[in-house]
Amino acid sequence: MNNMILGRYSPYDSFLHRLDPRNKIVSMILLMVALFFQFNLPGTSITDFVMTFIVEGVILFIVIISMIVAHVSIKQFFKSLKAMWFVVLLLFIINIFIVASPSSADWTSTMYYYYGESFRIQVPAWNWDYPIYWASIYQSIKIVSRLIIMISLTMILTSTTKPLDLTFAFEWFMSPLKLIKFPAHEIAMTLSIALRFIPTLLDETDRIMKAQSSRGVDFKHGRVSLRIKALVALIIPLFISAFQRSEELADAMEARGYNPRAKRTHYHKLTWSVFDSVIILFTLAILAGVIVISVMNITYYTPTFLGWLFIALAITITMFILLGIFSSTRKVAK
C-alpha cells in the first residue's frame, strides 16, 4: 500500500494548497478539456500531432510547476504511475490496432496514407496480414500521453486539497439544484464519507492480507487459480467488515442526532481570493487559446519557431513570478 501516493492529500502549506477548492476543480476541468481538442489546420505545415503535443507540452509544464510548488515528489508520482502501467500498455496496443482503419474517406484516412505504413504484422498460419501505420502509433502515443497528463492533473488536485474541502466544493456546485429538491447535501455527505473510508478500507485490506498471509496465502506468486482463491479470502472478510462499519457509522450518526434535512452551517467557509481569479483566468486563457486555434481554424497566423519560443518564455516567466511570490511553502503537522 506504500505506493498509493496517487490521490492522497499531502499536508503542506503551499500556494496551491491555499487556493479555493472550487477554483482548483474548475481549473482542472478546463485544462482537461483543453487537452482533448483535435486540430485540423488545413493550409499550414502544422499537423494535428504537432499541435496536440504542443498543447500537451504546455499543460505538462503547468503540471510540473504545480508539482514543484505543491511539494509533490515527481519521482513518487512516477512510482505510483507504475501501478497503472498495465492499463496504459493495453490502451496503447488496442489503439494501435483499432485506430488504424484508413478505409473511411475522412480526413484521418488521408493522414494515414500521408504518414504511411510502419510495418505489417503477418501470421501466415492464420492468413493474417495487418498493416500498422505510423499514424496509428502517433495516435496511440497521443491518447496515452493525454491519459497520463490527465491523471497527473487530478493528482495535483487531490494532493493539494483536503478531501473534505473537495466535498464542500461539490456541495457548493450542486447548491443551485437544491431549488428543485435535489439532495445536494446528502450526496456531498455520502461522498465525504466514502472518501473518508478509503484509507480505512486500505488499512483493512492490508490487515486482512497480512492475516491471510500468516495462514500461508500467497497473493503474489503461484498459479492463477490459487491467486483467485487468495482473492476470495481477501474480498469476503473485507466486504463483511465494510458492511459492519457502515452500519456502525449509521447508528453512530443517528445517535448524535444527524438529520440530513436540517439546515446547517459550515465550520470552514470557502474563500475566493484574488489569486483564485488570476489562476482561473490563466487556465481560461489556455482553453480559449486552444479553442481559437482548433475550432475557429486560425490559419492566417502560424507562429514561427521563434514565435513558439516567445510564447513558452512568456508562460515560464509568468509561472516563475507566481512561484516567486507564493512559494513560501512549509510542511504542516499531519
Binding site: R207, A211, S213, S214, R215, G216, A233, I236, P237, I240
Partner: peptide
C-alpha cells in the same frame, strides 16, 4: 517461516471467510 511462526492478529475473527 509462516508455518513456523503463527501470528493471530487483533480482531482475528475478521479473517474468517
Amino acid at each position: 517461516l509462516r508455518k513456523k511462526v503463527g501470528i493471530v492478529f487483533q480482531f482475528s475473527e475478521n479473517q474468517l471467510f
